[in-house]
Amino acid sequence: MALSIEDIKKVAHLARIEVSESDAAATLTKLTGILGLIEQMQAVDTTGIEPMSHSQDLSQRLRDDIVTKTNLRDEFQKNAPALGNGSTEPAVAGGLYLVPKVIE
């Protein structure tokens, strides 16, 4: 499965990482090398083998439905990034996190 520049751009878009034309070419070379490594898997016959997600065959533990969290909004929002586009103010207002307008 040879990788193309278009694949790189598509994947970069899905991952929300800006990639310039020159970056895309360099990335293509490196990712092609890594995929070459990965391709070794295709030689293995895995028919009927149960995929392994966890190393231990355990089941999910359940938590009691009791409120244990308190309001730490102000503490958490001290880490808010700077708004950007000329403003160094934190990207919060009235307790809300601020982002560029969301269009539906």
Binding site: D65, I66, V67, K69, L72, F76, Q77, G95, L96, Y97
Partner: peptide, 29 residues
């Protein structure tokens, strides 16, 4: 109709002030 969120112990009561029921799991620290 639970008291808390599906994956954390934060309250799900309707109508609270913004982000006051957003614990570290809710905001994905």
């Amino acid at each position: 109709r639970t008291n808390t969120k599906i994956f954390s112990g934060a309250s799900i009561k309707y109508g609270a002030e913004p982000n006051t029921q957003a614990c570290e799991v809710s905001i994905a620290l």
